[in-house]
Nucleic acid binder design. Structure first.
Lengths: 146, 146
DNA sequence: GCTTGACCTATAGCGCGCTATAGGTTGTGT
DNA sequence: ACACAACCTATAGCGCGCTATAGGTCAAGC
């Protein structure tokens, strides 16, 4: 078996017609621009180049959309293009399930670390905001007192 | 009063000598490169251009370091340079405490939103990891059975 | 006295991730 | 029949945030 069965990667809850989606609809569905989607294909981030209709237009099917949703997730959690490309290459190669798992687990660690940092920054920001609120409140009082 | 008193923005718990730090030490302290620090100065992200010694070398004092820590926090939570510049400009202008507060509160919202998205992405990533773990485990079993 | 290193200014260059432009084909609605 | 939108390829350009380079001053240590 080459890839994890689709049933195990439930990403998207939109229904995709059997004939697939145009690039415009696909882009809208996953929240990318049409250019970006073509760019991703060129850069080898897709599982496969999207199949074309007789007129040369791309069609995106269910599994493409699922993959795209995952790819957007990786990108939005800060995974660089090059690394996504590596993951895509792995996912194209049968018998690399362990490596894929390792890649995802490693990325998970970076996301968790990033989350932690952001939470700490948020705390600092809250401290700053509290200080300013106190200052502004104090100023208001002073005006009242006059 | 021009700025919020330093006591209300406790950012950094390192002690800074009275004569201040060199740019190298300051950069190391706040986790930036020397070039980046100079770049930030040029771009007007500092409260004021750092004062120079007779030899033209910058000195960073306590309040500069505090500001820098805050600036790094803003940058690392994704605030663009241009917006940091605006905040710096506000912080230079007396009587703008309310605007500064508003800027920080607004940024807080974007950070919270970003945090939420990242947590959702993390959940999706965890689902993927779980699926792969199950797959790999199942594969292992199959090999055992042979 | 001379090298070494940290600093200085000024300016050019770069990596990333798109985004825009040119020039063309297809197909759908009026 | 014809305009108009959506698609196509190929390639150039751009915004952001640094980072590197050139060319120099100064201070300390060997």
């Amino acid at each position: 078996m080459d890839r994890v069965p689709p049933s195990l990667t439930p990403q998207l809850d939109v229904d995709v017609p059997d004939e697939g989606l145009s690039i415009g609809d696909a882009a809208a569905t996953v929240g990318l621009s049409v250019q970006t989607l073509r760019y991703y294909e060129r850069e080898g981030l897709l599982l496969d180049p999207a199949p074309r209709r007789s007129n040369g237009h791309r069609r995106f099917h269910r599994n493409d959309l699922d993959w795209l949703a995952g790819l957007v997730m990786l990108r939005e959690t800060g995974m660089p293009i090059a690394q996504v490309r590596d993951v895509a290459a792995l996912s194209r190669t049968p018998g690399t399930e362990r490596e894929r798992l390792a890649a995802f687990e490693e990325h998970r660690e970076t996301v968790v670390a990033q989350l932690k940092r952001t939470r700490e920054h948020l705390a600092a920001l809250d401290t700053k905001i509290a200080a300013y609120r106190a200052y502004v409140a104090r100023e208001e009082e002073t005006i009242h007192d006059e």
